[in-house]
Nucleic acid binder design. Structure first.
Length: 427
DNA sequence: TCTGGGGTCCTAGGACCC
DNA sequence: TCTGGGGTCCTAGGACCC
């Protein structure tokens, strides 16, 4: 029997922080986004205080202090490393692991045994991961990924499941569908949920009961797939090759923002360089480059201003300087066309049209010596790998990162920096 | 004063072709 | 008044995900 499990880390970022602050278990914890801008992760206790995903920090600051909530800036180095530990453990329990996000993965558990065995198997995985990494996880197991996601939410909500909820027959499925709000279904977002609510469809069961033709006529094929999955027909295939089809590097600027041309150019150059590095890490080239920047989206009475431009190169590239030149060139062009320099709050670079570096279509009129360039890039990557990124960089990137992030509540790099490794004392 | 970052897929409409 | 028919490809924007 075809069976999928989804393993979902509970409140992942908060859980990572708690691993190194065990005294915070059972206490409210939140993790903030870049620049300590807004709340992006909450422990169960923090959710109970009414804190919402995306709440601006400055708006909830008082509440956080009053309720003595532990606050952390996001520490992606730590979370990435903890994620690696969890995924490596999970991979031991399945012939095929599909890593879906930093805190979530699908496991193929087809033809591994009967219901009671599978249920125990899931519980074993959950307890092993918790014990070995300190990260609590919830597991859902079902014949489709959408139903498995439902299961993992039940497993998280009800302690009695021991970390694993199995939905593998008609009765269990019907019961689960009836208890599950349709807006929480994987694939049903705010917009579709609102339309469904107007029709009186509020539970997953209500939605699953509709005719396929009705779903198709109202929504897109994506919604039909979700509908089929809820009815037990597996049709969502994840093609996790690890190779991205587009790569984006963007940041909001702390404080007021940036209205200095040089600083903005430097920022965009750094975003471009970061994109190029990510691109080379997955051994790809790109042909499309987009640069964008905009002012604050939240200033009362001041309409935001956007600049955005894309270019397609004649030859796919993975060269930092080429991508920087394109991105910064577009930025300059756009700024020149503006009557005055506004206060930019965010900027970014996106690269797309990504292909494998092994099969690059050459341009007959290309003027660049690409063999030489490749050797240079490899040397730079090698130096940066050993000495920290940006040890060697393009001049446009500047000598320091002046638009540096604000992260007042940053925890340490417990698992990736020898200086920060915890020391155990024996009494 | 202060509001994240990084992805995927689908669709509609325009440009272009014969 | 009346203006073909059929196709492909590309792009921007929307919706969704974590």
């Amino acid at each position: 029997m075809q069976l999928f499990a989804v393993a979902d880390c509970n409140n992942f970022y908060c859980s990572c922080e708690r691993v190194f602050h065990p005294e915070l278990v059972g206490k409210p914890v939140v993790v903030l986004s870049n620049n300590d801008g807004c709340v992006i992760a909450r422990s169960e206790e923090a959710k109970k205080l009414g804190l919402k995903m995306g709440d601006p920090f400055f708006q909830v600051r008082e509440l956080l202090e009053r309720e003595r909530v532990a606050v952390f800036s996001s520490n992606y180095t730590l979370y990435g490393s903890m994620s690696g530990r969890v995924m490596s453990l999970l991979s031991q329990y399945t012939p095929s692991l599909d890593v879906y996000s930093i805190d979530e993965a699908f496991l193929d558990l087809s033809d591994m045994g009967d219901s009671s065995y599978i249920k125990k198997y899931g519980e074993t995985i959950a307890s092993r991961v918790h014990k070995a990494t300190g990260i609590p996880i919830s597991i859902g197991i079902a014949p489709t990924k959408t139903l498995a996601k439902m299961g993992s939410k039940f497993a998280k909500k009800y302690k009695g499941y021991h970390g694993c909820c199995l939905i593998d027959n008609y009765e269990r499925r019907q019961k689960a569908l009836r208890l599950f709000p349709v807006e929480d279904v994987w694939g049903i977002g705010r917009r579709i949920a609102k339309q469904l609510a107007c029709e009186g469809i509020t539970t997953a069961a209500d939605f699953a009961r509709q005719k396929e033709s009705w779903v198709r006529s109202r929504f897109s094929v994506t919604a039909v797939r979700t509908w089929k999955e809820l009815n037990g027909e597996s049709c969502i295939v994840l093609s996790d090759t690890g190779e991205k089809k587009s790569i984006c590097t963007s940041r909001s600027f702390s404080g007021q923002g940036i209205n200095d041309v040089g600083m903005l150019e430097e920022a965009v150059a750094n975003f471009a360089a970061r994109c190029a590095a990510k691109l080379r890490r997955q051994r790809s080239c790109c042909q499309g480059i987009t640069m964008f920047a905009h002012t604050s989206l939240f200033r009362e009475g001041v309409p935001p201003r956007f600049i955005q431009q894309s270019v397609q190169l004649s030859v796919p590239t993975q060269d930092t300087s080429e991508i920087i030149t394109a991105a910064v060139g577009m930025l300059r062009e756009n700024l020149k066309a503006m009557p005055e320099m506004p206060l930019f709050k965010k900027a970014g670079v996106i690269i797309w049209n990504i292909t494998s570096a092994r099969v690059v279509q050459q341009d007959l009129f290309d003027t660049v010596d690409r063999t030489k360039q490749k050797a240079l890039l490899e040397a730079i990557d090698e130096i940066n790998r050993h000495n920290g990124h940006d040890t060697v960089r393009i001049a446009t990137q500047g000598t320091d990162i002046r638009f540096g992030l604000q992260h007042e509540y940053l925890s340490r790099q417990y698992t990736t920096n020898i200086e920060d490794v915890l020391v155990a004392k024996i009494k």
